[in-house]
Design a protein around this nucleic acid. Structure first.
Lengths: 204, 204
DNA sequence: TGTACATCAGTGAACGCGCGTTCACTGATGTAC
DNA sequence: TGTACATCAGTGAACGCGCGTTCACTGATGTAC
């Protein structure tokens, strides 16, 4: 593809370049200059499209939350065919997202971006969380009231376990030991948890 | 306290300074020069005690794993008074460690140090993991064989959930919403999980 | 279709900064006799 | 106790580097008539 003086869509090209760099070097090991170089442009050109390094990083995270929320929504599928099946599909989608979009994932959860400084980020992150809570809510309808934990707690547990599996067992961290794939590990963990809630029969 | 030309215990002083900096700025936002400055010493002096920046960081993590393993061991307390109580104490100790030693925790789990490049780190990290697996093993003795998940998987689930709670709900991340303290959140999560394993009675 | 001009997206050079690391050095400490 | 000397732990200056950011600029694009 030819490229004249004007780039065409430099803004998105920079986001994509940042994504590759983040996926390779982690969220802190990404530089505005390298991103510019990757798309054959002067560092100064970046400032036509972003306020600076952090603004570019925030845009990467924002796009990540967008994709994330859409993927979760799609996996949950309105609770079909059953609340339980939909919920489990959502858990699998979480891991699939982390695997397929590592750069987005890192920018979202490991970059240390402050939500307070980026209201537009807080907004879209909240939307993503709402999807997960809706899934938890619909599943928890099947529990006898009174012994239900709040749906927000329920979804926090699942989110925490999913995130922990990604961080500890999908990257090369302390316990890359063990013959379990992250996917199997999380699926089994969610299964046990749901059994503990009484949403699955006690025996296997 | 006076201080002459020789420092006395510069090595440990540098580790402590690094810890403060990491706790404040995250594991990547720590510089050798700042650590040296914090203990009133030339950056070059650091090289009398460490091979370089990364070596200092690795020592911080190593000390972290040491404390971590000791704390877990102490909390587990040889499985007394009961395997269950000891296990739950271990879970609480995990969070207490993350709260009390944030610099260590970050150096251990968020610094991106490669275990392959630091064999002495891999060793002590393995020791820490062994403590957790022993706790899981002893608890899983109480399960009818045949429907036991392997103890390593069991402990991986608990570790993942604990780590996820720390990362997502103990720092200021996406969901600092919710009226639950990390401690309550994790305790409830572990409770539900153990019920799912049949280690706690099904009703509340 | 052709020309004049405003708008816009990039360039390229420069900046000040703090970083990790090296080097020859020197002042303090400890040991032998 | 006193002196000579080896060892050691620090200094201070210097380095090359890549970073984010700024600025005046210029070449390309699009629009009005």
């Amino acid at each position: 593809m030819k490229r004249g003086y004007h780039h065409g869509n430099l803004r998105q090209a920079l986001v994509d370049a940042a994504l590759s760099l983040i996926a390779e070097n982690g969220p802190t090991g990404f530089t505005l200059s390298e991103a510019a170089k990757a798309v054959d442009v002067t560092p100064a050109a970046v400032y036509r499209h972003f306020a600076g390094r952090e603004d570019l990083l925030a845009e990467v995270a924002r796009q990540g939350y967008d994709i994330f929320a859409a993927l979760m929504e799609f996996a949950f599928n309105g609770g079909k065919p059953s609340a339980l099946a939909a919920f489990e599909a959502t858990g699998r989608a979480y891991l699939a997202f982390a695997r397929k979009y590592p750069g987005h994932y890192m920018a979202m959860f490991e970059s240390g971006l402050s939500m307070a400084d980026h209201p537009e980020l807080a907004l879209v992150a909240g939307k993503a969380r709402a999807v997960l809570e809706r899934a938890a809510e619909s599943l928890s309808q099947h529990l006898p009231p009174g012994q239900r934990p709040p749906a927000t707690m329920f979804s926090a547990h699942i989110w925490a376990m999913s995130h922990g599996v990604v961080e500890l067992y999908m990257r090369g961290n302390p316990g890359n030991r063990g013959p379990f794939s992250p996917e199997d590990l999380l699926e089994a963990g969610i299964g046990i948890y749901l059994r503990g809630l009484g949403l699955l029969p006690p025996d296997r």
